[in-house]
Design a protein around this nucleic acid. Structure first.
Lengths: 210, 210
DNA sequence: CCTTATTAGTAACCTATGTTACATTATCTT
DNA sequence: AAGATAATGTAACATAGGTTACTAATAAGG
């Protein structure tokens, strides 16, 4: 476990800090599809991703949702840091996109290490920054891009994260994450198929040329 | 000047830090409408707002734009912190919405103080958090709300920030900030007028009941 | 005061996206 | 295998919002 931690975070954080993380943190192996954070929960620890990916989704009372971004290895989730430090309830849902290994840090360590480890401080800052950028990027996509473009990016990104050129999701699931409707997504997917970019199957989509 | 600083930040930051801010910072009185940050610039200092408000706008090559959020007194702009710490070019435009007084801090102090002043650390964290929340809120508005709702919120917010129940902007300017078109905004404004919520005049809009 | 530029009003039209409804196909249960 | 369930295809229609084009009203400059 420590070697995994070192291989991912070795270049980012102090060796002594890695030792400490290894001691106070709890390793968690999480299966793809597992809900890690639910909206409304209090978050009392922050996750450092060692491998895999977590998707972060904004979810609403009426069941509507919107995919915000993915957190990948070598990153942490600023939304949970934000919640931690302010003792607020989570406003988002986090789900393991693939099998994921992470280490969980109790939140009081977060602040303590900021005083003691310069590189931890930089890491935390960089995380916030990345998140702000991802949010800005999501905002731009929703504001400026048409749904067909967003769909193409969604398929590419999902293929990349899963390391496959095939997406194992139903049209309904895709529609939910893009905050659209099943019929519309089916229509656009069919158009992409006719253009030769993808091949549609039941429960999965083959990516040919995007 | 120091007394202004104290009255706004006194409850947030250490007294000794306020002294230091007062010494190393540069006070700037900025007129409404002045561009403070332009996209593409390097940012080498971060602003602490003492009074007034700054609007932060994403701007694109083709002249299109989108209002992201306002920064008000007692706050700093995390987008610029993000840019500072990573030596990146700004991706946003910042314009004084009203006459604004702020104090500018050289960016190396930002990190230095984080090690030395716990309350500065909390302040910086809280800023990032606020900004993440504002971005999330902007995202949601664009993703879920219809233009007429966004327009109403825009008018309310602008009225609040300017401390008036009257908006001094043309339909074109409003359309730009909401990333829409003049004709559409005129149409919606007229509808709001017919409903008795506002009264339209040339170059300004009277807010009656929103 | 006359000309010009800016701002706003309005109509006609277009398109992307959403909705409803129903048919078809694949998969699962028993 | 028969029926049930879930996933997908497709057509018909509704609507928000964008576009173009033109007019009308107001302000500004000489």
């Amino acid at each position: 476990m420590l070697t995994d931690l070192q291989s991912v975070y070795g270049s980012l954080l102090e060796a002594s800090l890695l030792q400490e993380i290894n001691q106070v943190g709890t390793y968690r192996q999480i299966q793809a599809g597992t809900e890690i954070i639910r909206p409304g929960e209090y978050i009392k620890s922050i996750p450092l991703l060692i491998s895999g990916a977590i998707k972060v989704i904004r979810e609403y009372d009426d069941g509507e949702e919107l995919l915000l971004y993915y957190v990948e290895e070598g990153n942490t989730c600023s939304m949970s840091m934000a919640c931690c430090t302010e003792q607020k309830r989570s406003t988002i849902k986090a789900v393991a996109e693939v099998d994921t290994l992470l280490i969980v840090i109790p939140n009081q360590k977060l602040e303590e290490w900021i005083g003691r480890y310069p590189r931890w401080r930089s890491f935390i800052f960089a995380s916030y920054q990345n998140r702000l950028e991802e949010m800005l990027s999501s905002l731009e996509k929703v504001a400026f891009e048409r749904l067909d473009e967003r769909l193409i990016e969604y398929l590419k990104e999902k293929g990349r994260i899963n390391g496959e050129n095939s997406i194992h999701q139903t049209h309904k699931e895709i529609a939910d994450e893009l905050h659209s409707s099943r019929v519309v997504i089916s229509r656009l997917l069919k158009k992409l198929e006719n253009l030769g970019h993808i091949k549609l199957h039941r429960n999965h989509i083959e990516l040919l040329d995007l």
